[in-house]
Design a protein around this nucleic acid. Structure first.
Lengths: 355, 355
DNA sequence: TTGTAAGCGTTATCAG
DNA sequence: CTGATAACGCTTACAA
């Protein structure tokens, strides 16, 4: 490994000079700067980020902690964040956790947070309060925090608005008996296990769109189902077997995996999409464009999501919260957690092509 | 942040004692051990891994560098690696790069390799030699290195064997005019840009299975196509438009995205799968089970893949190569890069259900 | 059995 | 303008 000292020796200057020059300090003689730059170049020097964060508390790396990794969604976000961060001269490292809640907390505390200036956190089962206790003061942006009194800045998917647009679309194409697939019964007493918050907001969006059109959303039309292919496939088959499909002409699915599973489950039972039932999903995963039939969906704009998350995070990193008494006057409002909503687009495809 | 000193102060011992005790050194009095443990617990102490790797050169973190992230494959591998590493008491961080070749090299050099004891590297366009120059001596396991003279330990997908099994399966179900979709013309002069090595081996596997059955694989049956949904869809449409589909009754697709795109492209043109053309993919992504028709594929066992990669890496970390003259006798053979092949399973599904 | 002290590679302070 | 020097939090001889 080539260090600052190696460069210094070769350039005939001191280590501190190399450090300054390489970080763009302007007060050195052109001659010195050139020598240092060349020496660094020739040796293939790259600053040691562990040493840098140890000493300076900053190293230009941002951590992305993503939970529940088998699904593609978080990774699309991570990819978008990586690209967006790159454009701002920042690096990212991603940590995925597939273990227990304790494992998630420990690895977040022990690994991700230690190597970076700030964190973007896409949670599964850990609550903001727990995280706050473990991660301490490191700047952090939360994904999908719908808490009434948020503890962190957050970016959220447009669950309410997206569901609203989706259901309006179902109504537009002539659906009149609309059901929702993928609602989870809220687990009483337990901490929100991730998607009940989504559920609530998406359900509310559905209800709102239906109400606009003079319809209601009876609880019998809200069909519980885990958010994965297989569960949705089985649920759709069950619907068909119970002859409920004739009572439904439009189905809003809580996410695209559920929509894909449902399409497949209906196919298993000879129910035609969209002729018998129109289906729309949520998320905008690439596969929905290539299924038969292709599946309409609410496509989340992950580039926009990433941009907003980084805007929030970078601001927190550059202007750390005036903790406690310092600058007390407007610190309260500046420190109030902000919440941004990502953009989305309605993708009209075959699964809702009834008119 | 709570440090070793904080714990030491609270426990009434020195920092070094805390360090020893917490890492399990057995030579301390039970009493001391208990005090230290309790102090650490009470303060919520977690060792600073940046400091640890700086001083000790080891921190129990392994880096996973994954390139070309829009596809789900690398992330399935990363998820499997994370789980497997967790079981061995190791942490992982993932770095994904979506930028240029230079960007990939730089971020690998500057970020991933600095925080960890070793690397698992799933490359796109960077050659092993380039990496070796940039990453230096850090232990590293390469994914999918098919070089004739490998520089690193590697785990590879069973491209030859899998393609062989896939084509045998097509033959088994009665296909006699088999084509391959997704072959890339080798780019003469340029460094392998990732998948030509796959291509070659998968093609060879196809050829081998066909030869066994007394068939050949004419170059007109090898259809070039980028490995993504859209390109494959267009390619399938082109096949149909050129009436080539009647000349084909079985299609081996280089990966599942290509297979899904092809199924969709044939659907666009009214060509039935599997009745007109049987289709089989490669990789085993979850979606292939839920398309209409579901798609047969060669499912790579990523748990096995991860296990093998970590076996190789951990051995290199624990027994660094006897570089140069030290222990020269058998170091040569011990240092010879090893290559392991991951397990796989043939998934028989609707897209090849002709008998 | 425990503590002291010297770094790991970097940055920040302060002289020169 | 440039260079010592002292940390950052940890590990590890070595001394006590």
């Amino acid at each position: 490994m080539v260090t600052l000292r190696d460069v210094a020796t070769r350039a005939g200057v001191s280590a501190s000079t190399v450090s300054y020059v390489l970080r763009g300090d302007a007060r050195f003689q052109p001659d010195t700067v050139a020598r240092v730059r060349r020496a660094a170049e020739e040796l293939g020097y790259a600053a040691n980020l562990s040493a840098r964060i140890l000493k300076a508390g900053r190293n230009g790396v941002i951590g992305v902690a993503v939970y529940g990794l088998s699904i593609c969604q978080p990774m699309r976000l991570a990819a978008a964040l990586t690209r967006e961060a790159g454009e701002r001269g920042l690096n990212t490292i991603v940590q995925q956790t597939v273990n227990s809640r304790e494992g998630e907390l420990r690895s977040l505390e022990q690994v991700t947070s230690q190597f970076c200036d700030g964190l973007i956190f896409s949670p599964s089962s850990v609550s903001p309060a727990e995280i706050k206790a473990h991660v301490g003061t490191k700047p952090m942006v939360w994904c999908e925090d719908f808490a009434a009194e948020p503890l962190f800045d957050a970016v959220v998917t447009p669950s309410f608005e997206g569901a609203q647009v989706a259901v309006r679309h179902l109504l537009d194409v002539g659906c009149r008996r609309i059901a929702v697939l993928g609602a989870n019964p809220p687990k009483s007493g337990l901490a929100d296990s991730g998607n009940t918050a989504f559920c609530d907001r998406r359900l509310a969006g559905c209800g709102s769109a239906l109400a606009e059109a003079g319809f209601s959303l009876p609880s019998t039309s809200i069909i519980p189902c885990p958010w994965d292919y297989e569960a949705a496939r089985l649920a759709a088959r069950r619907l068909a077997d119970a002859r409920l499909d004739t009572a439904i002409d439009g189905l809003f699915c809580m996410n695209d995996a559920v929509a894909m599973g449902a399409v497949r489950g209906f196919a298993d039972r000879g129910i035609r999409v969209p002729e018998d039932v129109a289906i729309i999903g949520f998320d905008g995963i690439a596969e929905t464009a290539y299924t038969v039939p292709s599946i309409s969906t609410i496509a989340i704009d992950y580039d926009d999501y990433a941009r907003k998350a980084l805007d929030l995070l970078v601001e927190r990193i550059d202007h750390p919260a005036a903790a406690g008494a310092v600058g007390a006057t407007d610190s309260a409002e500046r420190d109030a957690p902000r919440r941004l909503v990502a953009d989305f687009t309605l993708m009209r495809r075959e699964s809702t092509a009834r008119r």
